[in-house]
Design a protein around this nucleic acid. Structure first.
Length: 285
DNA sequence: ATTGAGACCTGTCGGC
DNA sequence: TGCCGACAGGTCTCAA
């Protein structure tokens, strides 16, 4: 479901229920999501306090008093519900309603709130990683450790983006979906950012850099567009899902008139790396 | 090392 | 109405 802006909004919604609160009860309704839950998942969480709830890329990170980190990823269809524990318990067993059928993880927090993870497609992930020992991450680098820069941080700019695009022969859109290039873009905001920067999604990534890997003008626009698109999405959204937000420039707008001022183009849809890309062939070069 | 294709799942929507 | 295929916001693994 979510790209960086949606995950960030989920984080802000969960923080009041989870941050500074203790896990009083943890219930798993099945043994796995995309991967099995780590052994002792519930036991290791119980009694721990969440010192802070942060986000890295599309991952939510619950930092625990034990030093361990609760890692949560929403995959395509994951979502969290927050409700008073009394309400959650009252509804428990009798209600096998469709709405709750995919409730896989239930956290009862000392804040009096229950946080429930629901994920129909089960592409989500929950993991509990132990406090890092020196060098541990080099021995077994996980996806988390290979992530590129946070696009809204100062570390992300035209220079760093150019460095990571240099020499890559894949189409620009495909490169933007690679979380090692920039951490948190997904299929929607990759298309959105490219449209705002007026860059063709089909252009080779390496054409945005000079022979030595430096930035060309396009990459300056692209870095700025990525920041702009994500910042606006975080700010504008009234809920965590797309339906109510609706206002995309090109995504899911095939055949619409291009929104670029002065452009008479029509939005097209093409396939790249198995995903649909939306763009305007007239103003995106 | 990089890249593309397929796999993992369920739900929904449009067409017949 | 019901069935069927296409498609969905994300990774991950495997083979070329």
């Amino acid at each position: 479901m979510p790209e960086l802006p949606e995950v960030e909004r989920v984080r802000r919604r969960l923080a009041p229920a989870m941050a500074k609160a203790r896990f009083e009860r943890v219930r798993l309704n099945r043994a796995d999501l995309r991967r099995p839950f780590p052994t002792g998942f519930a036991r290791r969480l119980r009694g721990q306090t969440v010192t802070a709830l942060t986000r890295r890329c599309k991952y939510l990170l619950g930092h625990l008093s034990s030093g361990d980190t609760l890692v949560m990823h929403l995959g395509m269809s994951g979502s969290f519900r927050v409700e008073p524990t009394a309400d959650a318990r009252a509804r428990r067993d009798p209600d096998a309603a469709l709405e709750y059928r995919h409730d896989h993880v239930v956290f009862e927090m000392s804040s009096g709130q229950t946080v429930t993870f629901n994920d129909p497609r089960r592409f989500g992930v929950m993991d509990l990683v132990r406090a890092e020992r020196a060098g541990a991450e080099r021995q077994r680098p996980s996806a988390l450790h290979q992530l590129g820069p946070e696009p809204l941080s100062k570390a992300f700019d035209a220079i760093s983006l150019a460095e990571r695009l240099a020499g890559r022969r894949v189409p620009l859109k495909v490169a933007l979906l690679d979380q090692r290039v920039v951490a948190g873009l997904g299929n929607i905001y990759a298309s959105e950012a490219l449209h705002l920067a007026r860059l063709s999604p089909q252009r080779r990534a390496s054409t945005l850099t000079t022979a030595s890997g430096g930035p060309r003008p396009g990459v300056v626009r692209l870095a700025a567009a990525i920041k702009s698109v994500l910042t606006r999405a975080i700010r504008l959204k009234s809920t965590d899902d797309y339906s109510s937000s609706g206002r995309f420039r090109v995504y899911d707008r095939e055949s619409d008139r291009c929104p670029t001022p002065g452009c008479k183009g029509t939005i097209r849809r093409v396939w790249q790396a198995g995903r649909s890309t939306f763009y305007c062939p007239d103003c995106q070069r």
